[in-house]
């Protein structure tokens, strides 16, 4: 038996909006520690890892570990029927072939339940080791989204370089080229506006902008984003989800032939 009650139901709506275009089908894994998902896009270039910790739910009951295969397009259709202020409860029976989403309006005067069929998904789980990254950049998520959007109008790929001078985003295409440099700044009044660069070693990696732009659909989940980079490793683009967890996107770099 599984019963997870999330008071801020809009978080789940936002999570689905952030990942449904990247991944079609995914297994949601439920355990004592939380509600999680790991899934790759169909080309195995990008991976999303979601964690909603059990202590972030108002009520969390998960009698045994459960893996529920869901079509994210269909799940998103159902969650769109929840109001932004609604409390969302996810319910499932052990060994059942469906999951129920229950939506309660804040004043409790409207209660809906939507039952969705589960599916069997052969999941390919990647073991991602804990790594010390060469450079970690924390910046406003809206700024990162803006840069990715702007640069994708010029080119298809971006070179992200971190040095002691700051983080540089470069692209080039048929019409020309562009560079955006963000320097470390410290905002006294608002930590969310800060750009903070921790660098042990300069690092420069090339990525497809199409994927980064897809990741920025998670911008509504967090005011800040963290980019963790090491030479010859996928970048980690992380959005913290207030008080409850995180959504991490991994993107394999372009490799020089």
């Amino acid at each position: 038996m599984l019963e997870l009650r999330l008071v801020q139901g809009s978080l789940l709506k936002k999570v689905l909006d952030a990942i449904k275009d990247l991944v079609t089908d995914a297994n949601f894994d439920c355990s004592e520690s939380g509600f999680s998902l790991q899934a790759m896009d169909s080309s195995h270039v990008a991976l999303v890892a979601l964690l909603l910790r059990s202590d972030g739910f108002e009520h969390y009951r998960c009698d045994r570990n459960l893996s529920m295969g869901m079509n994210l397009t269909n799940m998103s259709k159902m969650l769109k029927c929840a109001g932004n202020d609604d409390i969302i409860t996810i319910k499932a029976d052990d060994g059942g072939d469906s999951v129920t989403f229950m939506f309660e309006s804040p004043s409790q005067d409207k209660v809906s339940d939507f039952e969705m069929k589960l599916m069997d998904i052969d999941s390919e789980h990647l073991g991602i080791p804990e790594t010390e990254y060469h450079a970690i950049v924390k910046m406003p998520s809206a700024e990162f989204a803006r840069i990715c959007r702007d640069l994708s109008t010029i080119g298809d790929t971006v070179v992200i370089s971190v040095s002691k001078d700051g983080v540089k985003f470069s692209t080039s295409g048929d019409i020309g080229s562009a560079n955006v440099v963000c320097r470390q700044n410290n905002s006294v009044d608002n930590k969310d506006n800060e750009t903070v660069i921790e660098m042990n070693e300069p690092v420069s990696l090339t990525f497809a902008l199409r994927y980064l732009n897809s990741f920025t659909k998670a911008t509504t989940l967090s005011n800040t984003v963290t980019l963790s980079m090491s030479k010859e490793l996928p970048v980690v683009v992380e959005y913290k989800i207030a008080e409850i967890g995180h959504i991490r996107f991994y993107l394999a770099p372009k490799i020089e032939d």
Partner: peptide, 14 residues
């Protein structure tokens, strides 16, 4: 010239 890396080249399938 560069080519797109795949995640399996960096992480192990489990």
């Amino acid at each position: 010239k560069s080519s797109q890396g795949r995640l399996e080249s960096f992480f192990q399938l489990s």
